[in-house]
């Protein structure tokens, strides 16, 4: 569980290119302007790089990366 939290943060930090994602796990990253739909591809690339799990853009909905907590839940389903 803890590992997935850390994994989620690492991936989102890489995709948003800022450690600001660590401050608040419920912050709406789209609204905060830290992530955009283009970044979803980077999220998938980072996920594959770190876990070897290759997912498709169609597997990842906008909702899944809206907050850190949402992304942790997504990882629990797909990786955990």
């Amino acid at each position: 569980m803890e590992n997935l939290q850390e994994l989620a943060l690492d991936i989102l930090e890489a995709a948003c290119e800022t450690d600001e994602v660590r401050e608040d796990p419920d912050l709406d990253l789209f609204e905060a302007g830290l992530i955009d739909s283009l970044a979803s591809v980077v999220v998938l690339l980072e996920l594959e790089k770190r876990t070897g799990v290759k997912l498709q853009p169609t597997d990842l909905e906008r909702e899944d990366i809206t907050t850190v907590n949402n992304f942790v839940k997504f990882l629990e389903k797909k990786v955990g």
Binding site: C16, E17, E23, D24, A32, G33
Partner: peptide, 26 residues
């Protein structure tokens, strides 16, 4: 306010003035 929250506030205000694709991510 933390730097993050100030940044978010500035981005919000900026978005009312320029197209969203022009608002800096960082």
């Amino acid at each position: 306010l933390s730097d993050l929250k100030i940044g978010i506030e500035l981005k919000k205000q900026l978005k009312e003035r320029i197209p969203s694709y022009m608002v800096p991510r960082k």
